[in-house]
Every structure is written in C-alpha cells, then in structure tokens.
Design a protein around this nucleic acid. Structure first.
Length: 259
DNA sequence: ATGGTAGTGCTACTA
C-alpha cells in the first residue's frame, strides 16, 4: 500500500497535476491539504474518472482537507471525522477516516504567521487539542497513519538554513516540542526511518527562486504508529510536480507499506 | 529590514 500527502494549494488549479501525478505514482491513499474548495465544488466526478473516491472537508478560499483512495483496491471509508472533539472551529484542517484496517488522520496544521502572533497562539492551542485527539485515536487504532502539512520542521536537518531560520515560526522550540509530544504518543516520522541526512525538503517558497536553489523546509510528514513500523518499506519526497508549470509550493511525500 | 510570489476574488488576507 502506497500512501501520499500533498498540500496542493488550491485543488481547482492543481487538479490536472494531481490526476497526472496519481497516474504516475499510483498511490492507494492520498491525503490533500489546502484544497480551498467548498464541499459542493469538490471535483468528485473528475477524481472518480481518475479511479479515486474521496472524502473531504472544505471551505471557501482557505484551508480544506481531503482523503482519496483508489477505487479498485481500497474498501469504503468508515468512521469519518471532520472536527476535533470539543473544538468548535470553522477552519477545515482535520479529516480522519478508516480504510480497511488502517486509520488515516489528515492534518493541515495552522501556519502560525510569526512567533508571538495571535495565529501562533492558535497554532499551539490547536496542536494541544490535536494531541489529545491523537492519544484517543492511537488507543483505538493500532494501524494509525497521521499525515499532512505539519507546518513544523522537526529539527535543523529539515531546514535549508537553520541559522537564518533560527527560532522563527516553523522552527520555534514550542512548535517542535508540540510535534515531539505527538510523536511520543508512539508515532514515527516515516521519512527518518530511511534517511538521516539533510537537504530533503517538501516546501519551497515561491519567491527568490527558492526551489531552484533548494532553499526549503521539510514540513510535510507521514507519521506511523508502532504497529506499522515494520511494514514501512520506502519513504520518499517526490519533487517531480514541483518542477511542473504553475506548481504548488509543496511537493508530494510518500510511504510504501507492505500490508 | 524589506520584499520578493501565488491563490482567492476583487481588497486584503493567508501562506
């Protein structure tokens, strides 16, 4: 089973790229972030024609998450959750669904704007509530996959210029501590099961030719529970779509599981 | 220190 996560930065714009990439990469499950589409405008028919069924939780202009599964190989979605229990939040940033015996939680973590900003405080509070939700999820579902745009670079290896980034947003100690508390629930950064080096990034700013210069950060993660660790075979960051015309600022990340 | 680009939607806001 191949699982992918991609912040598409507008599914309306990126739909042709998503369909092309899926045809080439053949993922069984794709978690999307920043679809920026109301549910009524989700491209159900176009994705069905491409062989994928979908669940989605979207809004106009901002945020929006979706999970796609390959029709031919995957069972129906079960136990779909679109909100963190106890958090009344209009921002569409979380989507959980069970596919067979795998539980998938798709996250679009708050960006936070800047350390000290009110959006940063919202980010940390949101992460605390997600932590509580994931503690319940991992107790219920041993085969747990938590993936998405975390908007946190786990450590300095995941940052192009850690001195310049310093303790700015995406790299601040409080954000990294929040991510660590999530991984300490028993969730592993699957990419780091296979690759220890730096210079592997999943997001590059549109400005300053950042992609060409590989000035990026690795903020798109696929976390897996202990029970799936031995099933993990390959983790990768596929930079191909970032080279295409009119790309998302993020590129897809993938994980192959032998299940 | 600032601003550079992109998406939405038409004015700033978010990233």
């Amino acid at each position: 089973m191949k699982i992918a996560s991609w912040n598409v930065n507008s599914l309306k714009v990126r739909l042709p790229q998503l369909i092309q990439w899926a045809a080439e990469a053949q993922p069984d499950i794709i978690a999307l972030q920043e679809t920026k589409l109301e549910d009524a405008k989700f491209p159900v028919d176009e994705l069905a024609a491409a062989g994928y069924r979908a669940v989605y939780s979207g809004q106009k202009t901002y945020n929006g998450v979706a999970i796609l599964t390959r029709d031919a190989t995957q069972p129906e979605f079960k136990d779909v959750v679109t909100d963190i229990p106890g958090l009344d939040d209009p921002q569409r940033r979380i989507l959980a669904a069970t596919i067979g015996d795998v539980r998938v939680v798709d996250l679009y973590v708050v960006n936070g704007k800047a350390v000290g900003d009110e959006k940063y405080a919202y980010k940390l509070d949101w992460l605390t509530k997600v932590h509580a939700f994931l503690a319940q999820e991992i107790a219920r579902h041993p085969n747990l996959v938590v993936l998405g745009d975390f908007n946190i670079a786990p450590d300095d290896r995941d940052v192009y210029d850690p001195v310049a980034w310093g303790e700015e947003v995406l790299c601040s100690p409080a954000e990294r501590a929040a991510l660590k508390s999530i991984t300490e629930l028993g969730l592993h950064d699957s990419f780091r099961l296979f690759e220890q080096g730096g210079e592997h990034y999943s997001w590059w700013d549109y400005r300053q030719a950042a992609f060409r210069r590989n000035m990026g950060v690795r903020i798109d993660l696929i976390l897996i529970g202990d029970a799936l660790k031995s099933a993990a075979k390959t983790a990768a960051i596929d930079r191909t779509p970032r080279r295409w015309e009119r790309p998302s600022d993020h590129t897809p990340v993938t994980l192959d599981l032998e299940i």
